[in-house]
């Protein structure tokens, strides 16, 4: 029982949210906040794998999100929506619910492949030089898409709402809520399994002493490649969901500011703590929403709060611990590994 309690609690929670959304208990605004929370959890926990567990400093996470968003949007719009350039839908709209997750995963896979751009230089460089490469990749991806006229260039790309409507036409349930929660669950599930395996513990070994890791038979290059690809692939999935939730993407919504948001969530939660990333993603989303009426002053207050938080708790909310380390009594109710 203890072994599955966390999973069951999570599943029940998700079901309640979906049922609530279906029954109209939450209005659209609350729903959208929950959706963004899910997407932010994916973003922060996937970036945490690289920045927290592996100890690199990747500041271009939004680039992979961007790739995932565009690729999955193009696939779904190509298949299920009328578009000026891509033409009439290729498949009947009834199939939308089946092909939608495939499109999201395709987006994730392509984003993972773009992740190689960062992973290969990481074999030779570390730290700040790698940070630059990630920033440069972020700029390159945005600039590359702005120059692709077929997907709208700087004006952006739309039509994803049609896809969501197509899904609702088949069965009228809150599809995006379901997919986002599934995506969040999938991310946490994969990350949890990865970092608790002997394979994934190699990531921590690289963080703490790369030379010792290599000498103790850890294939550091392979681990770096897998880790970067996993992290960027998950960011791609987050991007795909983001694009379909908003229904519209443009390259500038994935600029360095978005990457900064991801960074903030990781360091707010604590480096290397999965539960910390989840917690900070939730808090950060709520904070953004709570301060929304302040408009531009919001972007003064939030950094100020973070700066103050760093002064009082320089290791983030959770440090490098998990929830079950901070409250050992929780272990009675669930296992986290």
């Amino acid at each position: 029982m203890r072994k599955y309690s966390l999973n069951i609690a999570f599943a029940v929670g998700c079901l309640l949210i979906v049922a609530g959304a279906q029954a109209g208990l939450f209005n659209l605004y609350v729903q959208s906040v929950i959706l963004f929370m899910g997407i932010n959890i994916i973003l922060s926990s996937s970036l945490n794998l690289v920045n927290g567990n592996m100890g690199e400093f990747s500041c271009g996470h939004a680039a992979f999100m961007c790739v995932g968003a565009y690729v999955s949007s193009i696939v779904t719009v190509l298949l299920f929506a009328q578009n000026k350039i891509l033409g009439a839908p290729l498949l009947p709209p009834d199939l939308a619910p089946f092909f939608f997750p495939i499109a999201i995963i395709v987006g994730g896979v392509v984003a993972a492949l773009v992740g190689i751009l960062v992973a290969v230089p990481s074999f030779k460089t570390r730290g700040d030089y790698l940070a630059i490469i990630t920033i440069a990749v972020n700029y390159m991806v945005i600039s590359g898409i702005e120059n692709l006229d077929i997907v709208g260039g700087p004006r952006g790309f739309m039509g994803m709402k049609q896809v969501v409507y197509a899904m609702s036409d088949v069965v009228d349930i809150p599809w995006m809520m379901i997919w986002t929660l599934l995506g969040t669950a999938f991310t946490l599930w994969i990350l949890r399994r990865y970092i608790s395996s002997t394979y994934g513990k190699g990531v921590n070994a690289i963080c703490q002493d790369e030379i010792a890791a290599e000498i103790m038979s850890v294939n550091t290059n392979k681990i770096k490649l897998v880790t970067f690809m996993l992290s960027s692939g998950l960011a791609g999935i987050a991007g795909g969901l983001f694009a379909h939730v908003i229904g519209y993407v443009n390259p500038q919504s994935f600029n360095i500011l978005k990457s900064t948001e991801c960074l903030v969530m990781v360091y707010l939660g604590g480096m290397g703590s999965l539960s910390g990333s989840v917690l900070s993603a939730v808090l950060f989303t709520l904070m953004l929403e709570a301060l929304r009426p302040l408009q531009i002053i919001k972007w003064v207050i939030i950094p100020l709060i973070l700066v103050l938080l760093m002064q009082f708790r320089p290791e983030g909310i959770m440090g490098n611990k998990e929830l079950s380390d901070v409250f050992p009594k929780l272990r009675r109710y669930f296992t986290f590994k």
Binding site: N51, F57, T260, L263, V264, Y267, M271, I296, I297, W299, V300, I302, P303, L304, L306, V307, M310, P314, E315, G316
Partner: peptide
């Protein structure tokens, strides 16, 4: 940790800008 100082710097930049 060094990176927390970097994040603080990022935040200070945002504060100045906004």
């Amino acid at each position: 940790h060094r990176l927390y100082v970097v994040i603080t710097a990022l935040m200070c930049g945002l504060i100045l800008e906004n």
